[in-house]
Design a protein around this nucleic acid. Structure first.
Lengths: 275, 275
DNA sequence: CCATCTTTGTGCACGCGTTCACAAAGACAT
DNA sequence: ATGTCTTTGTGAACGCGTGCACAAAGATGG
């Protein structure tokens, strides 16, 4: 059992900060695009713009990899592509299994971004016997019973879980027992894994919820609470930060602009509301 | 404002740290599960374990929302569910459009996690005329031409982009022009948006690349790096992952269509091109 | 009503990540 | 060669996030 401990001791990596590692794929993509356009060199400023980050951050990130730039010129695109690929371990071929071939699993199987980056889908696995043999993305789906054998035969160390939440932990346990040490989890569940196994989580609904939070904040700043008329967004250059009266939202009485704006900096206290 | 400008003002949200907001959905999920099991109260320790975080962190997170706990007892599950839902803006209904109904778009349309959390798929939009009318997830796909009208009619403020990379920026521009102010982007591209618009990115291949990095590090550590010393590894079984030439080892039957050399299926060419 | 026990809420310290600003390094022109 | 100009690489400051440790608050039992 042993729940809990799902976190990573992580950052013990050889010098390279976790935040930097997370950005390397971003740089790599931008560099690949430049490479395809036969651009020979690129400055930190240009590359940073293409990757959507700060140039100083980019330079510092690269400094962890070594001094691959030339002052006064910039970075050699091809060379940098190679260095980052090597650092990320993409110069080798990573066999990957996808477990749970529903809509999402099928989407992942068809996703081109994998094959083009050193990943190879070694097998598609599903628990539904009726799916066995069905071709998805030009590859027959195999039954869960074969899981251990598939992993052993292909030397798979990375697994993708796109099953329903209820099956995720069980699948995870089997993957780990079979030798998988890195898992990308799409199921909305917290997975428990032993030390030494990395888990990364992608949760679609969480991302949306975070957006909703900001959206609500934006709407609240500008007008009342309720989703009044879907008014065309006028230039809300108001630029003020009226502390949202979120507490008052319980009583949605149209949009009261007047509504006091006392309380400047401090957070708004819920005040009432019986405990 | 031209292009560029991808940075976000970030934590300008008066009060609740961004990191905390990102965890609220996690707590909410755990609490919902408890609620369904009719658990009346929960301690920070228990809830933290269920959510996979540190209990101190959880308490601090909740402290930003207010003092909703009872010392010596814990938190009232139902009450906390309500408070977090309200804070995240999930007590209202958020109409969402999904643009790009390929494999991934279809998966998103079918994803139950949306409807159960205050999100409602208002429309599915695709540029392919042949898809128009085709039912996906019990809803007819509509053509891109209808985009502006759909957004206006439904008061949509959140858009999901699951198109190929090449079309993403264009779709994004249209969404924003039509009034969308929050975007969840699945296309492997950096989107440029004006201030006031939030963009969150979910990139499948980036996550895998990060895993590959750690995987490589693990393998390298164990094998003793480049040390020439002929170490007699007893448990060499797990080390075979490092074998670089393992590509030919499996050689699955299915011919992998065309080579991935030139242009990746995801086509990450366009990207940015300022000036 | 008091003592004890449980659990929250938070002050504080620490470390990571970000950003600024600038000296060093090299290209390039003269 | 020398000066100028561009761009890298990084020292240092700052801010955010995390986790510890503990006092305050309230429940519970006598």
């Amino acid at each position: 059992m042993a729940t809990g401990r799902t976190h990573r001791p992580a950052t013990r990596s050889r010098g390279i900060p976790e935040a930097t590692v997370a950005r390397l794929p971003l740089y790599l993509r931008a560099l690949t695009a430049l490479s395809e356009r036969s651009v020979p060199t690129v400055s930190s400023e240009e590359l940073a713009a293409a990757a959507g980050v700060n140039s100083a951050k980019l330079r510092k990130d690269f400094s962890y990899l070594g001094s691959y730039g030339t002052r006064g010129v910039g970075y050699d695109v091809e060379y940098l592509v190679y260095q980052i690929s090597r650092e990320l371990g993409l110069t080798q071929d990573w066999p990957v299994v996808i477990v749970g071939i529903g809509n999402l699993g099928a989407a992942l199987a068809n996703y081109g971004g994998f094959a083009s980056r050193g990943f190879r889908v070694a097998a598609l696995i599903d628990a539904d016997p009726n799916m066995a043999g069905t071709p998805v993305a030009g590859m027959p789906v195999q039954h869960t019973d074969e899981l251990e054998k598939i992993i052993a035969d292909n030397g798979v160390s990375i697994g993708v879980i796109s099953t329903p939440a209820g099956a995720a932990q069980q699948v995870c346990d089997r993957l780990v027992a079979a030798g998988v040490t890195s898992i990308l989890n799409f199921a909305p569940t917290v997975l428990s894994v032993p030390d030494g196994v990395d888990v990364r989580k992608v949760d679609l609904s969480i991302e949306l919820q975070i957006l909703a939070f900001h959206e609500q904040r934006k709407a609240g700043e500008e007008a009342g609470a309720e989703a009044v008329v879907a008014d065309a967004v006028a230039e809300a250059a108001a630029a003020d930060v009226t502390a949202a009266g979120s507490a008052a939202e319980a009583a949605p009485t149209a949009a009261r602009a007047e509504n006091t704006d006392r309380k400047g900096p401090d957070g708004d206290v819920p005040a009432v509301m019986p405990a």
